[in-house]
Amino acid sequence: MDLFEPRLPEAKLHDAFRLIRFDPDYAKVLPVIQNWATGLLDRKGESQKFIKEFQSTFNSSMWELYLNRAMSDLGCSVDYSKSAPDFVVRGPGNYEFNIEAVISDQPPTTVQQKTFSEQDFKVRGALKLVGKIRDKLNLYRGINGKKHPYSSLSHVRGRPFVIAVAPFDSNISLFQNNELINLVLFGMAPPELVGPDHGKQDKLGSLLTPSGSPVEMGIFTKDFFKEISAVFFSTVGTFGKAVVESQIERLVRSTRYRVMDKDKVELGSMLWQVGTHRFQFTNLTYLTTLRWEGGNQIGGADTLIQPASLFQSVSRNPVRP
């Protein structure tokens, strides 16, 4: 079944779907995303619902498409005869587990704030992540009147239950890297980036909702969430991945964390200079390096901007020091 054959009136189509479907510049991306759906659209009674959600709400379906492709690339198989949880997976060595996918989305009527507060962004993002994880745990347990909780299903009992979550709750939610999920899962506050305590991370037990109610952080340190075996989290399971795979002419920005022992850095290496430095390799290929010292190591990040047609080959052979 064709993901991109419109099934809804144009007014109900999501802006992202409308852009991909009708902009001729993205024609090569459509078959890439369609390929990601292999198997998902074979589910009885589910395909029509999935396609309509993909066309109308987009983000949650795109996340499931990304996960579906990821399972295949990781050498796993999915039992599409089971409609719940989202992915009944068999991995290498016949290891079986279940994945329930969820996103922290924003309501269609949400108005983006004109002024940006980093603290508000982080608190709101963390609260949304922990709320969505709790919602899926409730589905597993059968709380709130669910007739057939996941825990009662024969293919779920005795197997790891994994929640795959991605943030789409604001226009910049995908910039949050791993700070907020570390806070949610382990109660780890963001690291200090300047001063004598550089790299230090404190523990943070809870955050306050706008109404002042405390919400516990560090869910993997508490027995209440013990049924959750693991959490998959990504801020890169997006349309941009399909753009890269299609290799259409677009500039792609990627950021990669790096760390190196000082004694392994080549003497005079320009790419491991402490501080922020910028390099231009070609007319459309740029690299920004951010480096800081910590003990016997130098850490930081590479932000690379380059054409999508070069991204895959360069990412397999990253810039060397």
Rank of each mutant, 00 (worst) to 15 (best):
R69M: 02
P318E: 07
E46Y: 12
Q48T: 08
K49R: 12
R18P: 10
C76N: 03
I228K: 01
Q201E: 13
E227L: 08
Q176E: 13
D2G: 11
L139P: 04
E179I: 08
L74T: 01
E64Q: 10
F311Q: 15
S246C: 11
Q113N: 11
P321L: 01
K28Q: 14
D25C: 00
F54A: 08
D86N: 02
D197W: 02
M1Q: 14
P107W: 03
L284Q: 09
G218S: 08
D2R: 11
A166R: 05
Y150F: 15
T288R: 09
R90E: 07
D120Q: 08
S61F: 00
F186V: 13
Q113D: 10
F225I: 03
A301I: 13
Y95T: 05
S246K: 03
L153K: 02
Y140C: 06
G295K: 05
T285V: 11
W36G: 01
A70M: 06
M188T: 15
R134I: 02
D197E: 14
C76Y: 03
V78Y: 00
V243G: 10
E293C: 03
V130N: 04
R291P: 09
Y66W: 13
S117H: 04
F186L: 15
F224I: 05
F50S: 09
L271E: 11
E216C: 02
F225E: 11
I181Q: 03
Q176A: 14
R141Y: 10
R291K: 06
P107A: 13
N177M: 11
K132T: 10
I172K: 10
K82Q: 12
S61N: 02
V32L: 09
Q119D: 14
L271D: 10
K44Q: 01
L153D: 02
V162H: 07
S213G: 01
S83W: 00
V130D: 04
G295S: 07
E227D: 15
R320Q: 09
Q297F: 12
L251S: 08
N182S: 15
L65N: 01
S206Y: 14
R18V: 07
P149W: 01
K52N: 09
W272S: 12
I248V: 13
T288C: 10
R291W: 04
F281A: 14
